[in-house]
Amino acid sequence: MIKSRKLKKILITGANGQLGSEIREIAISTTQYEWDFTDYQELDLCDLNHLEKKVAEINPQIIINCAAHTAVDKAETEVELSDVLNHQSIAIMAKWSNANDCKLIHISTDYVFDGNSAIALTETAQTNPINVYGVTKLAGEKACLEQNPNAIIIRTSWVYSSFGNNFVKTMSRLMQERDSLNVVNDQVGSPTYAADLAKAIMTIMEHKNWQSGIYNFSNEGEISWYDFALAIQEIGGFDCEVGGIPASNYPTPAKRPAYSLLDKSKIKNSFGVAVPEYKESLRKCMDLLRIKTN
């Protein structure tokens, strides 16, 4: 009798977040893997003393770490929590994955940059975070590659989805509630539809050559948050006046990079990852949101 081949097990952390939820959608129709979706209830990344043991019990062949302390403003006062989630837990998972022949994909952020660039940022651009969130995420990147040089890190930016709370949902709601609103117009980058990032991760996992290192992923387009809001207004058909204001008129506890557009050439060339234009993806997401709310 021929024994059935055991399916490769994939551990997803932060499974209830935007990206984790989008990967779960893909997993429904991707049956060649055994999926283990965990959030803090099943795998508490803050429990550093037992994290390695818990991961060992799951014993995955691939870890996709979507978990993070992403509350950028709260991180300014929740420094220890941010460091545990964004840095120390990553070091433990990276060390375990390296020792157990487990592939690791870790999600990072454009906030590792200071925003002073005038051109799209490549993976080798100088990092210099300007807030606690960025500092802890950069520390997580370094720990990840130190403990597991074979890991893949994906930096992304301005993530939104039909799941969770995000800029697209907030703007869509406010534009229906208000006659006018103002949006920051001097912070430039590109949004990322989490469903596109989830597809990119699948492309990398299934590529014949695993090429470790840091990669950038966001949708195509160079826009400000104000431009993004205008696109949401246009696609949603919302009758709301949208004005642009400088970030200095909208002070927040954490500073944001003024410019964090990511160059996606490396991920395209290395893995053949498709990078859709931002309006195309925004339209798909807003169509889904209409279906979900009707």
Rank of each mutant, 00 (worst) to 15 (best):
P149I: 11
P149Y: 09
A151V: 04
A151T: 00
I152C: 02
I152E: 00
I153N: 01
R155N: 06
R155C: 01
T156A: 04
W158A: 07
V159D: 06
V159T: 10
Y160P: 02
Y160H: 13
S162H: 12
G164L: 02
N165A: 13
N165Y: 11
N165R: 08
N166R: 05
F167W: 07
V168R: 00
T170F: 12
M171T: 11
M171N: 11
R173K: 15
L174S: 10
M175E: 03
Q176D: 15
Q176I: 10
Q176K: 10
E177H: 06
R178K: 14
R178S: 15
L181W: 07
L181N: 07
N182A: 12
N182G: 14
V184Y: 03
N185V: 11
N185P: 08
N185R: 07
Q187E: 13
Q187S: 12
V188C: 12
V188S: 11
G189Y: 01
S190K: 02
P191K: 04
T192I: 07
A194V: 04
A194I: 04
A194F: 02
A194H: 01
A195W: 00
A195C: 11
L197D: 00
L197N: 00
A200F: 01
M205V: 13
E206I: 05
E206A: 12
K208W: 12
N209Q: 14
W210Y: 14
Q211K: 15
S212Y: 07
G213D: 08
G213W: 04
G213Q: 11
I214N: 05
I214D: 03
Y215D: 00
N216E: 09
N216V: 03
N216Q: 08
S218F: 01
S218L: 05
S218V: 01
N219T: 06
E220D: 14
G221P: 04
E222L: 07
I223E: 06
W225N: 13
Y226L: 12
Y226E: 13
Y226F: 15
D227H: 02
F228S: 12
F228R: 03
L230I: 11
I232E: 00
I232W: 01
Q233N: 08
I235S: 05
I235R: 02
G236S: 08
G236E: 14
G237V: 09
G237L: 06
D239G: 10
E241C: 10
V242M: 04
V242L: 07
G243W: 10
G244R: 03
I245M: 05
I245D: 07
A247V: 08
S248Y: 03
S248H: 06
S248K: 06
N249I: 06
N249K: 09
Y250W: 09
P251C: 10
T252K: 10
T252H: 07
T252F: 06
P253I: 12
A254H: 09
A254G: 13
K255R: 14
A258S: 14
Y259F: 15
Y259R: 09
Y259Q: 10
Y259A: 10
S260F: 03
S260T: 13
S260D: 13
L261E: 12
L261D: 04
K264D: 04
S265A: 08
K266N: 04
I267W: 01
I267R: 01
K268A: 11
K268M: 13
N269W: 02
N269K: 10
N269P: 05
F271S: 03
G272N: 11
V273N: 02
V273K: 01
V275M: 02
P276A: 05
P276R: 04
E277V: 14
E277D: 14
